[in-house]
């Protein structure tokens, strides 16, 4: 899950070196925290949150596969 978000985020931003992804695993739900450079925040969120929404959709498809739930949090 972590690698998936990390790959997508790095491909979208200007500063891939500043992309940090942390996965906090819970029993049923894991939280994926995505941190990017301040200037890149808009790139991972997108117009009206479209990019963030698309990432969450892909993430939830990936989670269904392993029968878990995942949440994506973008940290400022």
């Amino acid at each position: 899950m972590k690698d998936l978000i990390e790959y997508i985020a790095k491909a979208l931003v200007d500063k891939p070196a500043d992309v940090a992804v942390k996965e906090i695993e819970g029993e049923q739900t894991s939280v994926i925290e995505l941190k990017v450079a301040k200037e890149d925040l808009g790139k991972v969120i997108g117009k009206q949150g479209r990019t963030a929404r698309a990432m969450r959709t892909i993430l939830s498809a990936a989670s269904t596969k392993i029968k878990k739930r995942s949440l994506l949090e973008i940290i400022e």
Binding site: I8, A11, G46, T51, T57, I58, A61
Partner: peptide, 18 residues
């Protein structure tokens, strides 16, 4: 594909962006 093509649309959007 997902419900009503939701996942397919998301993949399409992200790949377009990249």
């Amino acid at each position: 594909i997902g419900r009503r093509g939701k996942t397919l649309d998301a993949l399409q959007f992200i790949v377009n962006r990249i």
